[in-house]
Structures are given as C-alpha cells and as structure tokens.
Design a protein around this nucleic acid. Structure first.
Lengths: 175, 175
DNA sequence: CAAATATAGTTAGCCGCCTTATTATCTCAA
DNA sequence: TTGAGATAATAAGGCGGCTAACTATATTTG
C-alpha cells in the first residue's frame, strides 16, 4: 500500500542533509507535513481496503449511496460529479464500470435529450442493502478505541488545520 | 480535485436517511471518518498541486529527493520501492517517465547483472537544486499560521488517531 | 555441478483520477 | 426562426497506483 514518505531512519538522514542546504529549514513544518501525508494515506487506505471487500472503491461507494439513499434526486452524471467533487469524465468511467457490473442502469432522460438518468438495478439495491449494516458497524468499530472527548480533540485539530491552510489551498488551485 | 464526500447539505440528509435504516447508527464515528477523508484528500491535493508547478508528483518528488540527497545509497528500483512504500512495478513506471523526461539515468549494476543502478542526470540535479529552496519555503509558509503549540496539538491528535486505528489497519490488510 | 529456488526488473492489463477535445441537444436572442 | 452559445455526456489519452505473470540472473543445496 502506497505511502511515499520514507520511514524514520531514511527520513532522518534526509532531513539532516536538507537542513544543511536550506537556510531557515523549518523542521516543525516539514515534520508536520510528513505526518499529515502519512496519516492521510493511512486513512484513505483503510477505507479503500474496507470497500474492496465488496469490490467497491470510495468513488463507486459514493455513487451507490447517493442513488440508493436519495433516489428522489433524479441523478445524472453531472449531478453525481457535483455531489462527489470529481469531474464528469471520472463519473462516466465509474458509471461505465458500475453498469458493466450490473449495479446501475442508464436510461434516456424524458425531459432533456442530453441527459442520462441513472438508477440502481435490482442487484445494485441488493448490494447496498446488504453492505450498509456491516459498513457502518465497521466504521463505528474502527474508531471504537476513541472516547467522545478524544474524537472532539481530533476534530478540533482537523478544523484548526483547515483554517490554517485554507487560504493557502485556495491560492494553490489558482496557480 | 477529487474528494468524494458530499458537502454539508447532501451529507446531512444522507446521514439522516441512514440513521433510520441502521440500528445504533454511530453519528460521531461517521462524521469523524468523513472529516478525516476530506482532510486527507485536501492535504494530498495541496501537495500534488504544489508539486505540479515543477511537473512533479509525490512519487516523482520522493525518488528525486532520495537520489539527490542520499546518492551514496546506490539506488536500485527495489531499494526505491522499499523506501517509498510502493511496488516495484510502480517504481518502474515512475522511473520510465523520469528517465524519458531526462531527469535520471539507468545503468547496469557492476556487481549484479540483475540490478539497475539509478542516478540523477545533470538536468535532474539542476531541477532538484532549483526547487528545494522554494519547496521548503512553501511548506513552511503553508503552516505558517500555526504556532508551535498548535502544531503540537495536531501532531498529538494524529498520534492519537494512529494508536486507535493501528490494530484495525493491520487486521484490514490481512483481510 | 546441476537443479531448484530466490531475487531484480519489466510487461501487461485494470482502476480511478485528470485534461482536452468532440458530439448532441437545448436555450436564447437577434 | 435560426444561428450562436451553453450544457450534457462521452471519448481519447496521460498518470500513478495495483496484481499477476514473465525473463534473466544469482544463490543455495542436494
């Protein structure tokens, strides 16, 4: 499973070499960024591995959940792209595979010839209905070692981080 | 940029639907997992966008840094794969592209006919030498809104999370 | 020494992300 | 009313992950 940050020993000598080259080398920030990247990758992997149990990925799961739980929304590729924050082209790919696997169906939209109406198939509904209890049980279990106060502590830290890097993130995207 | 977690409004109705279906629905854990995934994605995107400035990615950057800063290591694809925690095949792909772009060179290893010795080319060295100051300046700047106490707070939260999910992560992989 | 096994690297092919066209349809305004 | 521009979906092609299978070389062992 990917990670890309070298472990302690290599990272340590790497940082010491770098600190010789870079004036004002900011150890704290670099360590923090490494921790964040490692922790991020770990979280993503945890969920991807979990979903793999049902042959799903984060993206496939997100689409199935939206179709299953909010069927009144008359989902189209564009709506899914907006809801899941990926591009239309990515949705096309996910929808291709999900429909190839028989979980969803495309049909012409009655009102607008450009649109495609997406629905869960019978087997798609079955899949979701079957996985939901285990899925949410598992999420609860993953974090079961944390008490309410600790969860709050983590959420606070994430919010703090969010606020601190938000302007930076916005500037990045423009670049 | 990907994210996959729907925003507040959709997420809210989604969760309320789910809580009707799932007995003992653990709001706190689900919210935490959503926050973690969003925050993870944001962190990864921040760095990927930052690297894109030089036509790099996390993986390409990791390899260049190791070749540049620890040249005495006599790097081979396998060593890089171990150091960066990706598969050999992934390293082959990254090395293909980096060498196509003229940043690194492959040569036969003198001692062992199976091995390939990887080195930075002149232009690879130039690239790294040129980007290092800006890169680390940028990292420092990204987190410049945080004081030492806040950085510690975030690191503590990450460590807490790490300890809490570690056994879960290990079990997952086996699955 | 020869055969079995281990190791290094690549290839092939899948997935999900992206950007940049392209095509089809719809809407609006001259 | 028709022609320009907006919008919906897909296609094509790149990237970086992965697994599984393959080749070539070393090593170990009977």
């Amino acid at each position: 499973m990917e990670n890309l940050i070298p472990d302690e020993t290599i990272r340590h000598t790497l940082l010491s070499r770098l600190s010789e080259q870079v004036p004002d080398f900011d150890f704290a920030a670099v360590q923090l960024s490494a921790q964040l990247l490692m922790s991020s990758q770990q979280t993503v992997n945890l969920f991807e591995n979990h979903f793999a149990q049902w042959g799903l990925s984060q993206g496939r799961f997100a689409i199935l959940m939206l179709l299953y739980n909010l069927p009144e929304n008359d989902w189209t590729p564009v709506k899914l792209a907006e809801a899941t924050h990926v591009t239309k082209a990515t949705v096309t790919g996910l929808v291709n595979n999900l429909s190839r696997d028989g979980y969803i169906t495309r049909r012409q939209h009655p009102d607008d010839g450009r649109k495609i109406s997406l629905r869960l198939s019978e087997s798609g509904e079955q899949l979701v209905r079957g996985m939901i209890p285990q899925h949410f049980e598992r999420i609860s279990q993953i974090y079961s070692n944390l008490d309410g106060q600790q969860i709050k502590q983590i959420c606070d830290a994430l919010a703090l981080l969010q606020r601190a890097i938000m302007p930076g993130a916005a500037r990045e995207i423009r670049q």
